[in-house]
Design a protein around this nucleic acid. Structure first.
Lengths: 137, 137
DNA sequence: TGTAGTTCCTCTAGCCACTAGAGGTTCAAG
DNA sequence: CTTGAACCTCTAGTGGCTAGAGGAACTACA
């Protein structure tokens, strides 16, 4: 049995965040001591690790909740887990592509001004000027 | 002179968002008609385009505000604009690297389950199991 | 057994950057 | 002069937490 603080140290999820997940229905309500403090078992620990991991992967809480309700499912329903993963992957690839374009432009902007501040800073100009971007965003 | 709707169409920034920016002090308060409606000039248009562009680049509003107050600055202060740009670039590169690692893992997870749902879905297992990740995140 | 210090409890409010909706007013075209 | 779109202010909601207040409970040591 873990206190909320121990669970926090085990999983790296902050204490208020654990309570927040419970509130949102992602973590089942744990047992309490006679003094009303939460006590968690290993199942709760695994559940929280699952949440942590999927959050790190960028899944929104709603998707994580959907995945959690699929535990123990089979057949048709399992396709939904696969769909969620595929959708996330495609979202992620979009984000990466977009950020790559932005990186190119930010690099251009910072270079525009390296060192020389003669009169008007080129960074400010470049920040304001979308027209000089090579690609859309 | 533009109405708020025209300004919105010109810049691609939604009407409530324009008002929001004004509220936050990013856009100066525009003139009003006798009937209390906002009327914008070209300076406001350029300002909003600057905000839009820098937001697209991922800068938080606080940084954008800092940049806006630097307009017309010179010497020392201009280094701050450059610093902001450099910091953003470095943040961005971190984010891209991190997302790249996540992409690898999500790809692994979706592949783990392609097609075959014999008993327990490997996606669910893989989502829960950080230990099988090749890299940290 | 007492007490000190840490951890826990609930609750409210704040963060960012918007977005949505209610309920009412003004503008522009015909 | 009427109609309908666009405008006004204001409040509240989103996601995913985080911070703080004010108080109760647990743990270690004397």
């Amino acid at each position: 049995m873990y206190s909320i603080g121990e669970l926090s140290r085990e999983t790296g999820v902050k204490v208020p965040t654990i309570r927040f997940y419970e509130d949102k229905g992602l973590l089942p309500e744990p047992e309490r001591t006679s003094g009303n403090q939460r006590r968690y078992d290993d199942a709760a620990l695994r559940c929280l690790q699952f949440i942590r991991h999927t959050r790190d992967l960028g899944l929104p809480l709603a998707d994580i909740e959907a995945l959690l309700t699929l535990e123990g499912a089979r057949g048709e329903d399992l396709n939904r887990a696969h769909d969620i993963a595929e959708r996330q992957l495609s979202d992620l690839r979009d984000r990466i592509a977009r950020l790559g374009r932005l990186e190119k432009e930010l690099a251009r902007i910072t270079k525009a001004c390296d060192g020389k501040h003669d009169h008007v800073c080129a960074v400010l100009h470049a920040f304001g000027d979308h027209g000089t971007c090579e690609e859309s965003h």
